[in-house]
Amino acid sequence: MGRAATAVAALAAAAIALAPFLAGDGFVYHVAILVAIEGLLAVSLHLTLRIGQLSLAQGGFMGIGAYASALLARDAGLPFPLALVGAVVIAAAIAAALGTVILRVRGVQFALLTFGLGEAIVLIFVEFVVPFGGNNGLMGIPPASLGPLSLQARPAFYGFALAVVFLVLLAVRGLLAGTPGMVLRSLADNEPLSRSLGTDELAWRRLVFAASAAVAAISGSLYAHYLGYISPEAFNVGATVKALIMNVVGGVGLLAGPLIGALILVPLPELFRASVRYQQLLYGLSLLALMLFLPRGLGGLLAGRSRP
């Protein structure tokens, strides 16, 4: 993209991000918050796609973040920012530990492995009623606040979520542009060569995988403290699949792709809400049409042919 195009894109992004403040409607804020939360999950999945491994366990990591944050804030009495950080550390640590073993598996086997892992994480929430509350989930999760500043009102929470998305994007861009990104690209270009130069590529992939779990956990923590209620089925493989579809719709080659996808897919069911009976069919058909006719996603369309 040229410099002018970049500027236009940045302006458009800013306009979309600020639009809910202009609309000022409670429901628009609600949908915008869900776009931010689900968009973060899509970004987390995007990171795993960047290491060439489709992880279907990201919904599970979002669940780990949500449950950890909820339990830390509600039962351990930690303030929201600390609960959020705690949830991120826990999810990232679990991913790093698992990554040592599971990242050795590649390709479709990795997708299936993480499919099993994602289902297993949710079943753990269902089976162990103490402390996770079983199918009933956890309720009475304290609303988010930053010190004395309450984030309970929707506009305030949206502002916070927006800031978080922005910071996460900066961090992810840094990660992909920095050493790990370079290592990963050289691996993609010439794996034997970079191996012979002694790069410990598994360690780098593990770092990116842990980062992806951390982003998923942020998404989970925001979800828990926004809704005040969580239950296991919100984090099953279906949630990951939705995030995956966001990446496909938005374009997997672009960092903005998952967010573009979230921006389209989160409000989409709302458009079909009046026709309950046909809602799923219309949704499915739109997805199939997008995949068949726009295989590089809408993001790919906007970016032109400059990136593969």
Binding site: H30, V31, G137, L227, Y229, I230, A234, E270, R273
Partner: peptide
């Protein structure tokens, strides 16, 4: 689903 109920 709880989350769908909140949205609705």
């Amino acid at each position: 689903k709880a989350a769908s109920a909140v949205t609705a």
